[in-house]
């Protein structure tokens, strides 16, 4: 199944088997609506608890407003639900940190995550917020794979990491923005040192 064709937004009602399945409605912060199967929702601990607590019937799902997910946009949420539908029914991994985590990125996930870094980071954030353990694992693995075999200089470019000098400059700038007198005090201190004084006071 291709990523584009994953059954997230458009659900063919006729294709639903005789056994009645429940499809919940969710709305992103940019007002895009998604229908997601009950089994797919189980991949997200946050959403699963939410729908359990709401105790909706099939009629409620249709008649009440869609459940709002206020801090995730439609583009990201579409990827999240595509992933959940594709992996519905799969066991959720448990990690107690005692053994090395071995995560392989399946072909479907690799295609799903063939996106720019900005969207990938939003996807990671969404997986973390919605507590989708395996989606978080594969997306973090993808970010980690970007670091493989890279030098520190290359890593700074890939992950947009500041060097120590840039980091300190940013801190100084932030400090100065808070206290404009700080720079003046520092300059005065440097000047006194140049004149031979050891103590500022």
């Amino acid at each position: 199944m291709s990523v584009e064709n994953a059954p997230v937004v458009d659900v063919d009602e006729a294709a639903i088997p005789v056994e009645k399945k429940m499809y919940y409605r969710f709305e992103s912060n940019d007002k895009k609506e998604f229908r997601v199967s009950e089994l797919a929702i189980q991949q997200s601990e946050t959403l699963n608890r939410l729908v359990e607590a709401m105790g909706y019937t099939s009629e409620d799902v249709e008649n009440k407003p869609a459940i709002a997910i206020e801090n995730i946009d439609g583009k990201t949420l579409k990827l999240v639900f595509q992933w959940c539908e594709h992996h519905k029914g799969e066991a959720i991994p448990v990690d107690d940190g005692s053994v090395p985590k071995i995560v392989e990125i399946p072909e479907f996930d690799a295609k799903l995550m063939d996106i720019d870094n900005g969207l990938l980071f939003k996807l990671i954030w969404a997986a973390d917020y919605l507590n989708i353990v395996q989606l978080l694992n594969v997306s973090c693995k993808k970010v980690a794979n970007m670091a493989q075999g890279k030098t520190p200089a290359q890593l700074r470019r890939v992950y947009l990491l500041p060097s120590d000098e840039e980091d300190e400059a940013a801190k100084r700038a932030a400090q100065e923005a808070q206290d404009p007198r700080a720079r003046e005090v520092e300059e005065e201190f440097e000047e006194r040192k140049r004149q031979g004084g050891n103590s500022f006071f």
């Binding site: 954030w125 973390d128 973090c140 980690a144 075999g149 520190p152 947009l160 990491l161 060097s163």
Partner: peptide
């Protein structure tokens, strides 16, 4: 940026890096 991520996500990312990639990452800042 990677540094914008919550600590538990950064931890998850670093977990997949081997000793040499971690040494490179540790040398960035």
């Amino acid at each position: 940026e990677l540094m914008d991520m919550p600590l538990d996500i950064m931890k998850n990312v670093v977990e997949y890096l081997d000793i040499f990639d971690r040494m490179s990452l540790a040398s960035t800042n």
